[in-house]
């Protein structure tokens, strides 16, 4: 059952490092078969973990539980916080979870409108987290916003434009900048390339890969797109009907899938 844990403990390079996030026996169901259950895994610092599966497999529910946005029915999510030390997310105070969400964590939503304030400028979108942690100098906030626009390859001349005037790809990059401005350690991404054109996807993936390695981010990324998973993730969890069916290093899972469902997923992508 605990494939992921066994796999990791046997992988020597992780042995001396404490996990950043550990999930133990996590369950969340809306109705029988709708949700996710019996989830166990560890995420190590600097690691990019992909959660793959078709829609309805429970991967988004799982991501919500991991990122403190949805209380699970049972189980634990343990997080090693810079500010609060080792903590059991849902056993602790909600105030701590909220602090994490605007400091050590970032969340990149599939739909930019869920992660951006569409009615305020790009600059304000990036500046919000800074202001939330007490920054009160307009000039400084604006300078940092420009810096991050550059980092995500958006022309700084667009700083006063609203996200609604941006293309889909730009909106996603803005969402990423908005999250990264406070230097989080852990980023949750829900289908970040969903709904984008293939060429735009490629550019975004390239940017993400660079940022992740340059900043040493840990990432949990949910995607139904195995190509995205292959490009970004070090390790994969394959989900089906709310349960984990296979875990392993990305290449291993994609090149030599063990579970029939994973085999089906992989073959369907090859046929495309």
């Amino acid at each position: 059952m605990n494939n992921a844990v066994e796999l990791l403990t046997s992988t020597s390079e992780w042995q001396d490092i404490a996990p950043l996030l550990s999930v133990r026996e996590l369950n969340k169901f809306y109705a029988p078969g709708k949700g996710c259950g019996d989830i166990n895994f560890d995420l190590y610092p600097g690691e990019v973990l992909g959660i793959v599966g078709e829609s309805g497999s429970g991967k988004s529910t799982l991501l919500s539980c991991l990122s403190a946005r949805l209380t699970p029915d049972s189980g634990q999510v343990l997080y090693n916080s810079e500010q609060f030390g080792e903590m059991d997310l849902y056993a602790g105070e909600e105030s701590q979870r909220r602090v994490l969400m605007r400091s050590e964590w970032g969340i990149v939503h599939q739909h930019a409108r869920d992660g951006l304030r569409m009615n305020v400028s790009a600059g304000a979108n990036i500046g919000e987290r800074l202001m939330a942690v007490g920054e009160r100098h307009y000039g400084d906030i604006r300078a940092k916003a420009e810096e991050w626009l550059t980092a995500v390859e958006i022309d700084t001349g667009r700083i006063d434009d609203r996200p609604s005037q941006f293309s889909g790809g730009m909106q996603q990059r803005l969402q990423i900048a908005r999250n990264l401005v406070t230097h989080p350690k852990l980023i949750f991404m829900d289908e970040p390339t969903g709904g984008l054109d293939v060429s735009v996807q490629a550019k975004l993936l390239d940017l993400l890969r660079n940022l992740v390695s340059r900043l040493g981010l840990s990432v949990i990324i949910v995607t139904h797109d195995l190509a995205v998973a292959r490009l970004l993730a070090h390790r994969l969890i394959v989900m089906r009907r709310g349960a984990v069916v296979e875990t392993g290093l990305t290449d291993q899972v994609l090149d030599d899938p063990q579970h029939p469902y994973t085999q089906l997923l992989v073959s369907s992508i090859l046929q495309n």
Partner: peptide, 18 residues
């Protein structure tokens, strides 16, 4: 309760920017 007042500052930021 948690003194989360960053969002209000966003409105002022927008004013200054515009």
């Amino acid at each position: 309760a948690l003194s989360e007042y960053g969002a209000m500052q966003v409105k002022l930021y927008e004013d200054v920017a515009r």
